[in-house]
């Protein structure tokens, strides 16, 4: 049965209600296709989201879905996945949901390494509340709540995830469907929390926020795809390279390019790479920043329950109640 799954099998009967031209459509399309490719039947898949434009996502998937409350999707997913580790669990969130109100839960799910996939739709703006600066908006962003420009320094979601000890960290672009498909499949295959930042264009409130690097016309020259085990070569004609030099990343000729490893025992190379984002002289990295193995949270939790049952035998209610020092009264 699973070999016959198609994208259509993952479409729900609900009308999709994002603004025309929103990057979310392309992501929905790619995720439905990825689910079909991965081949897990619909009833074994659950999408959990928080609040915001992106968080309507579960309604459009013909899987189990939970549209929760603002910022809390990682916490709800922790209970869900721990209670049923057989499920494939996907968390859908945005820059405000994940990094403002839900920053604490995001940090903790990443350090726990629950085996779920987190898709953070980053559009650098609050969309559903009609355009206020978000925790990823560049300083100086003018919105109705920051008429003279925002003061806050933004989060870099990739640096944040790496700092939390995430075991799989990647970035892709809503309009780069082929790339997104590859990243989604790699994330699904990873055992542990997979964190994917998706550059997502908000056509209404922050149109073109990523055009300088993500627009198809400049994309090949302005981004570098981090492919583990491959040389760091980029450019439309494959004529540019990157190499590590001490604690820096520098441009170089393609034949001098270093090989990218996402499995360094230290997070430093990935963290260094995450810092290139806003350097006009450097390519903006996409692809897989980090992919390492670590113990999985729900395996540990459920393993302790199994071990306790194996060691002590399945507890009987009567033994529980009648435990310790008891005495009888018979008068």
């Amino acid at each position: 049965m699973t070999d016959t799954l198609t994208k259509k099998d993952f479409k729900s009967d609900q009308e999709v209600r994002w603004c025309p031209g929103c990057g979310d459509y392309a992501i929905l399309n790619a995720v439905q296709q990825a689910c079909a490719t991965i081949g897990k039947p619909q009833h074994e898949v659950a999408f959990v989201s928080g609040i915001g434009c992106s968080s309507r996502f579960p309604y459009y998937m013909n899987t189990y879905g939970f549209h929760t409350i603002h910022g809390r999707a990682p916490a709800i997913a922790t209970g869900l996945k721990t209670a049923n580790p057989a499920l494939s669990v996907w968390i859908i969130t945005g820059d405000g949901d994940a990094l403002s109100i839900g920053g604490n839960h995001l940090a903790h799910i990443l350090r726990r390494n629950l085996d779920v996939n987190i898709l953070l739709f980053n559009n650098e703006i609050y969309g559903l509340t009609k355009g206020q600066y978000s925790p990823t908006s560049p300083a100086g962003t003018r919105t109705k709540t920051s008429p003279m420009g925002s003061i806050d320094r933004p989060f870099n979601p990739i640096s944040f995830a790496l700092g939390c000890g995430a075991t799989f960290v990647a970035r892709t672009i809503d309009t780069h469907l082929k790339h997104m498909a590859g990243v989604l499949e790699a994330a699904a295959a990873h055992k542990g929390t997979s964190f994917i930042e998706i550059y997502q264009n908000c056509v209404i409130f922050n149109d073109g926020a990523f055009d300088d690097v993500a627009d198809k016309k400049v994309r090949d020259d302005r981004t570098i795809d981090l492919e583990p085990g491959q040389k760091m070569i980029y450019g439309k004609d494959g004529d540019k390279g990157l190499k590590t030099e001490g604690f820096s990343m520098v441009r170089c000729a393609p034949e001098e390019a270093s090989t990218w490893t996402a499995a360094s025992p230290y997070g430093a190379p990935a963290f260094l790479m995450s810092g290139l984002d806003h350097d006009p002289e450097m390519p903006n990295p996409i692809g897989i920043f980090r992919s390492v193995d670590a113990p999985i949270f729900e395996d540990g939790v459920n393993g302790q329950v199994s071990a306790a049952i194996e060691k002590k035998g399945r507890g009987k209610l009567k033994d529980l109640i009648y435990a310790g020092e008891t005495w009888d009264i018979n008068s």
Partner: peptide
Amino acid sequence: CAAIGASFA
């Protein structure tokens, strides 16, 4: 929230 997620499961 974890408890709610578990109840959903």
